[in-house]
Amino acid sequence: MFKDLDPILHSQLRLAVMSLLISVKEAEFTFIREKTNATAGNLSVQIQKLKDAGYIDVIKKFNKNYPQTICKITKGGVKAFEEYVNSLQSYLGKE
């Protein structure tokens, strides 16, 4: 039996964000936007969905009077990401 792929992760932009965040300790919103080529509005919505799922932490602070949004993956996010990759590999192994 194959597990259903996690619907939160199985979308292009959210998966791209999670893949970036699994590689670094933390990243600023502008860095994620630059690497994913996403619009700020769409990225904000997807980040909020990942946050609501408990996969990432979002920290808002100020740097030189400018607002800064820092994202970092949570333990739950790492676990979900690993399970997602395992599921993908088992699907591909079946082909």
């Binding site: 292009q12 893949s19 970036l20 994913t36 997807q46 591909l92």
Partner: peptide, 26 residues
């Protein structure tokens, strides 16, 4: 990048592309 459903191969390819992007940024 838009919000769309991916097949399994595209997902794995996206994961490896983004990990590589993060690594090469440092």
């Amino acid at each position: 990048m838009e919000e769309k459903e991916l097949n399994e191969k595209e997902s794995l390819s996206l994961i490896s592309e983004m990990i590589q992007k993060a690594k090469s940024s440092f």
